[in-house]
Design a protein around this nucleic acid. Sequence first.
DNA 1: CAATGTTTAATTGCACACAACTAAATTTTT
DNA 2: AAAAATTTAGTTGTGTGCAATTAAACATTG
Lengths: 151, 151
Amino acid sequence: MMAASLNSTPENNMLKLDNQLCFPLYAVSRMLTKAYQPYLLALDLTYPQYLVFLLLWEQESLTVKQIGEKLLLDSGTLTPLLKRMEQKQWVSRQRDPHDERSVVIGLLPAGRALQAQACQIPEQILTKLHMSPTEFTALRTQLNQLLSQLT
Amino acid sequence: MMAASLNSTPENNMLKLDNQLCFPLYAVSRMLTKAYQPYLLALDLTYPQYLVFLLLWEQESLTVKQIGEKLLLDSGTLTPLLKRMEQKQWVSRQRDPHDERSVVIGLLPAGRALQAQACQIPEQILTKLHMSPTEFTALRTQLNQLLSQLT
DNA sequence: CAATGTTTAATTGCACACAACTAAATTTTT
DNA sequence: AAAAATTTAGTTGTGTGCAATTAAACATTG
């Protein structure tokens, strides 16, 4: 009886903002990006550019395609973003001689130098979140599971 | 000894993409928006426009400021978005006679009619997530807590 | 090896996000 | 009430995101 009434009216609870999962995800994502802002601004970085650096600091050289696969971004987003990073002399962009279709993004000295300044950012963000390491890991795990469902 | 070494090297684990909370949040948020895409496209809606409707379907009339407070968006985002929704005859935009600074957004019949078509979207998304109601609620609660920390 | 199909970036166009600024209306203070 | 401060949208400019298209390079197939 009650189960049937869950969707019996157009104005059912499912459409209330407070009952959505999508909204807090959307909002937390943007607010967390904003929390990074002051630290990234000091390095003249945007948030997606910071994510590209997280990859390049682990592996100095990646193709646009590899970056796109890891960050789930396509060339329409990455090409202009990487061109801006190239203008700032942070990365190099050159065709792979073995496969001219690919563009290899390489970390330049100025880009490598940013790592030393960025390495304290995660801890400072973590402080803002007021989360225990347990909560942090649990939430990350849940989100990663959800991510694998959605990709 | 070990504790000190956690940050002793620039190439520490904190800067690895896999250890970040920010990336899965950012990625899940975008992928979830993409999951809504086919349903929203059928209604000629974008995702943020859908969020505005979630509010207006609960309360037929809201000022730009009230919408901004609930969705955590400013007028730079909302003004053009709401103008597009006005062009489609979904909402009205008019100055509040009692306070000419405010612009009241009102739900028009065409906008109200969309609710009937949208009311099945949440369930269909929920199916895609493969989450139990318990997991769903727990994640939503955690995200809402995080959101309150970040605002 | 020529034709076809696939892969990879780049380009184009649209819609957010958001910082910074402007301008009008309202409120508060003097 | 006049001046100053605040509130509220709108505007401008930059940087994503992403769908759709294009073009070049490579791979596959007959």
